[in-house]
Amino acid sequence: MVTQLNLDPWTATLFLSGVLAFSSLVMYLIYVSLSRKTTHSSSEYSEPYIGGEPANIIRSIDVPARNLFWGIVRGTGRKLYVFLRDQMHNGVLNDWSVYMVTYVGLLALISIIIYFTR
């Protein structure tokens, strides 16, 4: 038997978010109640083996944010970004005005075309 809920998308989304939040809360509570309160401790347990280097050197390396997606960008949209960054948004006032004037011209052209073809 299939029961059908007639919900509009807002209510459905709010309902689903609420259900997800509630179920994750329940799972978290289950996890907290089932997890062991006391743990056995040994030196190997507290210091996991990561590499040959000590932990303070390993911890100091993290990826700069600019490199996080630069790999994707370099792989896919290099040409696009060279155009957008270095040719369009190059900070020179006169080079911007090329685009702005083209836009005025486009608008004027459209208004002339409408006027003569109506």
Binding site: Y99, M100, Y103, V104, L107, I110, S111, I114, Y115
Partner: peptide, 27 residues
Amino acid sequence: IYAATAVALALSLWAFTFKSAIFPNHF
């Protein structure tokens, strides 16, 4: 009025898109 309105609308659209930073006027 038709021609004048066409020009006026095009020009005012340019000004409004500048104020709201729409693509060619967003620099």
